[in-house]
Each structure stands twice: as C-alpha cells, then as structure tokens.
C-alpha cells in the first residue's frame, strides 16, 4: 500500500538508527547498505515528501532539557470534537494528539520547557474548552527503543 520497494524499506529501517555526527553522515548510512549517498538522499527525500517519513532529525528529550512531557486525555462530546480539536492543536505545547475509540477520545502529549509548564498548559486547555484534562505523567518507563520495521 505504501509503494515502497525493498531498497526503500532497507533505507527506512537503517534511517531509524542513529545518524553519525560526521561531515557526510548519509554516506556512512549508504555505505552500510552498499549503495550511493545520492541514492539514499533522493529516496529519503521522496519518502518524506510522500509522508512516509514524518520527520527526520534529532529526537529531543524535553525532560533532559529540564522540561517535561505529560500524556493527557479528555472526554470530548462528539458534536464539539472539531471545535475542541482546533483549540487544543493551537497550543504549541501539544506535541502529539490522537483520536481514540473510547469515552476518553482525545489523547495528547504536552511537552514543555519546565515541569510547571505542564500544569499551566493543562489548565489553559481546561479554561479554553471547559473540559477536564486528565493528566497521566509517566511514573516509570519500561522501554524507549521505538522502531517500526518497514
């Protein structure tokens, strides 16, 4: 369905590993796959244009920068969903937002520069929408090596 060939898939799997901090980092990635740097770049560019790659770059850890992440959820009435969505997505602190099939139907991640920023953002959303924002901060993380086999 994604229109990817085997080489695209190999590149995408390799591109989920850490890119080296060198002058020609994509040449290193290409070398591991036995192909040319220009081919890797052209295919990565195409996959990004096609929306198969959402983003290519550093994964920042807000907590390590002194900031914070918090998973939040709201029960949004069906009729108000798009209005609430516009308000929630307008907040720069909202990093990801997913609709889920449940009474709690809107699940988003707040990423802020300080732990206090989470409360401020959650309270701002509650004020704007009149809905309760349930906060689910992580207490323990059991796995972080997120990779998708292409």
């Amino acid at each position: 369905m994604s229109g990817l060939d085997d080489l695209d898939r190999a590149i995408l799997n390799a591109a989920q590993e850490d890119l080296p901090l060198t002058h020609r980092p994509f040449a290193a990635l290409a070398g591991r796959l036995g192909i040319g740097e220009a081919e890797v770049l052209a295919r990565l560019h195409r996959m990004k244009q096609a929306g198969i790659i959402t983003r290519f770059g550093p994964f920042f850890d807000a907590a390590a920068m002194g900031g914070a992440f918090c998973l939040c959820a709201m029960a949004v009435p069906r009729a108000d969903f798009e209005t609430v969505l516009t308000k929630v997505n307008a907040m720069p602190e909202v990093a990801h937002n997913y609709e889920r099939a449940h009474r709690l139907n809107m699940w988003f991640v707040l990423a802020t520069e300080t732990p206090e920023g989470i409360e401020a953002a959650a309270e701002a959303i509650e004020r704007e929408t009149g809905l309760t924002v349930h906060r689910f901060p992580k207490l323990q993380e059991f796995y972080i090596g997120f990779r998708v086999a292409a």
Binding site: L4, L12, I52, P58, F60, D61, A64, M65
Partner: peptide, 28 residues
C-alpha cells in the same frame, strides 16, 4: 556545531538523530 550536538547526546538531550516513520503509511 557537531561538538555541541555530541555534548547534547552525552547529556541525554538528544536521544538519537533518525527518521520518524508514519506507521500508518507503512501499513501498520
């Protein structure tokens, strides 16, 4: 810049530099 990025990695501020795939578009 590379020295700064290496230092941010060592401090855990950068976890890795990589592609974020859209798993929906990959059939997941």
């Amino acid at each position: 810049l590379i020295d700064r990025l290496k230092a941010m990695k060592a401090r855990g501020i950068i976890r890795r530099i990589a592609a974020a795939p859209n798993h929906y578009r990959l059939g997941m």
